[in-house]
Write a protein that binds this DNA or RNA. Sequence first.
RNA 1: GGCGUGGUAGCCAAGCGGUUAGGCAGAGGUCUGCAAAACCUUUCAGAUCGGUUCGACUCCGAUCCACGCCUCCA
Length: 466
Amino acid sequence: MKIHFHNSLTKQKELFTPLIEGQVKIYCCGVTVYDLCHLGHARGAVNFDVLRRFLEELGYQVTFVKNYTDIDDKIINRAVEQGLDWKQLTQTMILAHDQDMEALGVRPPDLAPKATEHIEEIIAMTRSLLDLGVAYQKDGDVFFKVRSFEGYGKLSGKNIDDLLSGSRVEVNEAKEDALDFALWKAHKPGEPFWESPFGPGRPGWHIECSAMAAKYLGPHFDIHAGGSDLIFPHHENEIAQSESCHHQPLANVWLHNGMIKIESQKMSKSLGNFYTLRELLSKYQGELIRFFLVSAQYRVGVNFSHEALAEKLEGLDRLYGALFKAQETGIPEEPFDYSPAALAYKNRFLEALADDLNSPMALSVLFELAKALNLGQLDLAQGYWLLKDLGAILGLLQQDPELWFKNPRIKGEEGLSEEAIEALLEARTQARAAKDWAKADQVRDQLAQGGVILIDKDGVTRWQRK
RNA sequence: GGCGUGGUAGCCAAGCGGUUAGGCAGAGGUCUGCAAAACCUUUCAGAUCGGUUCGACUCCGAUCCACGCCUCCA
């Protein structure tokens, strides 16, 4: 199957060809662990998790690296504010990150390197850049000479002189050129530091990704992914230093996910308009949040609101509903292989993802599949398992449908306990047996008030939460 | 100011130069003791103005609007 990606580097959709046949090496920029992750962090994580699952489905051997930035100004400042040891802070936040990602069904990366555990590699790379004459030392800092790199701006589409004319570039007397960026920051009292040939200090932001990517994926790999807000300066700087150092392209394909927006404004820490995953996960099933994120193609901006998320539930319930219906008489036996009819759905689903990860299109195939399954147009076992198998590529539909409907998907105030529900259900069953419809309906209403729906089918009554 | 992205029905969200995307919501119906689910029917598009074309939501241009990057940011 031919895969096409929109490559941020060429600004075009292009055919994807791995460097080594059958293998795909991906580096994904992770988070700076000074605070809890918010929905924006989840977006990239979920979409690139889908990328990984999709490639594996096609038989590629994928190496997926996602780093933690665990040393930087914000970490130091936040630790001081909270009276914590910076290391304590980052450990806490890494743990929280991992838990949040798990709740969203995001598989842990193959490698999750931390900047502070790669100081040696960072120093070595800085050393190389100094030796090449594209970096310079100044009072314990080491800066990269942006003008030494001919291709500077090729990713972000900026040119150096335009950047300079803007007034937003920080003035720093130590730099030879205002655009130069720090590879190594000289030690300041009270801050963590490591010894280095350039003096005690700590790494700059961009160098860690270059050093760790090179270590785990080699100097030239297939895909570099991250949020679109990282294009400049982070990824531009990564390209400059890595390509200066290794004299070859850093990544063939650059993928950038769009931003989550709140009332059309980018969700960001600085605007304060963000929802942490903690907060959202306490209110919604992780899978619902994931479904929401997968409902839009990864490059476009997405408006988040509680209403928008709640509306998505109906769609996800529909897919689970088809599975629920299909297994009413027991879970069908997994077929040995798929019929041509089933394979046609699978093919359309995969083709959608092969077209720059068009997850909304893939999802539409799932809805069509659900309908065919509901209508009995597809063999029960074929349809049931195909829906689950394809759902798995999006990281969805892996829960038991019966439990899916019994658990609150949007968690509100505590509803009726299962014991209370069962007791009322029993009372209704007796009323029905006596054909006391008024009494039976009264119980139904009572349960409905508690958010519980009853399903009478073949003489058996089951319940679900709305 | 520089660079870039987008404006699709009540809402969300895709593809496509000519053939129903899909989901939610709304209306009517089938089924059901009543419901729920499911199924059937149905209402509702392509910011504006020009151009190219036999034909444009889809290509080109202009205008308006919204958003992103240019400072840390997923």
